[in-house]
Amino acid sequence: MTHNPARLLSVAGELTIYTASEWKPRLLAPLLEGEHLELDLGAVQELDTAGLQLLLLAKKEARARGLTLLFCNHSPAALEAIELCGLAGFFGDPVLLSPTGP
């Protein structure tokens, strides 16, 4: 797998009901093309149920295809939502805790 480097994708702004339709194809495209994906959540300003659902969908899809999907550089907003739903374990990504806490 190492010969196939992950594609890096940055999510910026809000990942919410208002942008979900727009993000769904963009998030899934690399996976549908059989590429590993690394998703930079550093610029996520807002994450709601719809956004969270998309991340879950992508993760599931990646798992089903045997691909790696990593979330990294979680922004505080993203981290708060993930923690709130007790999903840190499901995503299984290393989370860098900011000194002020999530």
């Binding site: 993000w23 769904k24 719809a50 879950l56 969908l57 739903c85 007790g86 499901f90």
Partner: peptide, 17 residues
Amino acid sequence: IVTLTDSLPGADDMDPE
């Protein structure tokens, strides 16, 4: 808290809204 994703359909059928 446990978040249940069981009813999340496959990528094609999933309506992001």
